[in-house]
């Protein structure tokens, strides 16, 4: 079966004074219908930019998608006209963001902001769209939907606003919802509710979910398939249980070791030594080599390709590569 979203060798670059910054450098990934794929990685590893590139929301003029292919439902999003892409956005392909507090327009009512994509994409009339908006507010688990529809964003809490963002995103029944750190700005109890809501909506509508997060707890709870990114590249990917049980890339291993485990008492939580490299100063070798406890000479000379390591799992590391 062809994947719903098929990203191949995506390159997203930013022109900076110090040179070209490869925010996304040859990322390939697939999301099948109804599936949940998580992209994990530290801040600045290019996971958000991958999502923005898919939607065509990379901010010009300094940033632009420089190469690759993004196929969605069989069509290449990167070669579409802006107009065509716009009719897909918020319709078949929608996105929610990290900061619900600032992601809604402060001077428009909640109802109007939910109604907008309905009017734009489904061509509903004003009244019909507002009626549907109230229904959507109820569907995302907010009580008193009629009053909320007339409220402004500053009158709602962060968790409620993220629910509203989700209502906007699912309003036109998208095939794929991209959620960029949807729970990071919320407090822990609300986080679980938002994830539950996403799972519930997914079960009802069968939409696929591309979830971007740095939180491995979220990954374990939500993902079918995991993609680990480091410095603009995919370093490991695999089916979630395999990857958590048998991480093959030293970076993934480090990430999993630095996650606190309930009931386990440790003096100090493990952290990967060193820092994320400056993306402008990447050499020829593996970007993780300087922080890797297994680094070999070869790692600094030559970049390891992403290669299969067992079934349903790939890693970009010379430890597992073919000899020679």
């Amino acid at each position: 079966m062809e994947a719903l979203l098929d990203i191949r060798e995506l390159q997203t670059h930013f022109q900076t004074e110090a040179g070209v910054l490869r925010a996304v450098d040859g990322v390939s990934l697939r999301v099948r219908e109804g599936e949940t794929v998580c992209i994990v990685g530290e801040s600045g590893c290019g996971k958000s930019m991958t999502a923005m590139s898919v939607l065509g929301l990379v901010e010009g003029p300094s940033g632009k998608v420089a190469g690759g292919e993004v196929r969605f439902g069989g069509r290449d999003l990167l070669r579409m006209s802006r107009q065509e892409l716009r009719t897909l956005r918020g319709h078949e392909l929608s996105m929610i963001f990290q900061e619900p507090m600032s992601s809604l327009n402060p001077v428009l009512t909640i109802g109007r902001q939910i109604a907008e994509p309905l009017r734009e994409h489904l061509r509903l009339g004003r009244k019909e769209a507002m009626r549907r908006a109230v229904e959507l507010i109820r569907e995302v688990g907010i009580s008193r939907p009629e009053q909320i529809a007339d409220a402004y964003p500053h009158e709602l809490s962060g968790g409620m606003l993220q629910r509203v963002m989700i209502a906007i995103a699912v309003s036109c029944k998208p095939k794929l919802l991209i959620a960029d750190e949807p729970t990071t700005a919320l407090d822990v109890t609300i986080q679980a509710q938002i994830l539950d809501l996403l799972r519930g909506l997914q079960a009802k509508s069968g939409m696929a979910l591309l979830l971007i997060t740095h939180d491995l707890g979220v990954v374990a709870e939500m993902a079918d398939y995991v993609i680990v990114m480091y410095a603009g590249k995919v370093v490991e990917e695999g089916e979630v249980e395999r990857l958590f049980r048998e991480p093959r890339h030293p970076y993934t291993q480090g990430l999993l070791r630095s996650k606190p485990v309930l009931g386990q008492v440790r003096e100090e939580l493990y952290s990967i030594p060193g820092q994320v490299p400056n993306p402008l100063e990447l050499g020829a070798g593996c970007a993780f080599a300087d922080r890797c406890e297994f680094a070999m000479d070869r790692c600094r000379r030559q970049e390891p390709p992403l290669a299969p390591v067992g079934s349903d799992q790939q890693a970009a590391c010379w430890l597992h590569g073919k000899e020679g």
Binding site: L57, R86, T87, L88, R89, G90, H91, L104, N105, M165
Partner: peptide, 9 residues
């Protein structure tokens, strides 16, 4: 960005 992500012209 949200308004653009909604697909508004």
């Amino acid at each position: 960005r949200t308004a653009r992500a909604k697909g508004l012209p």
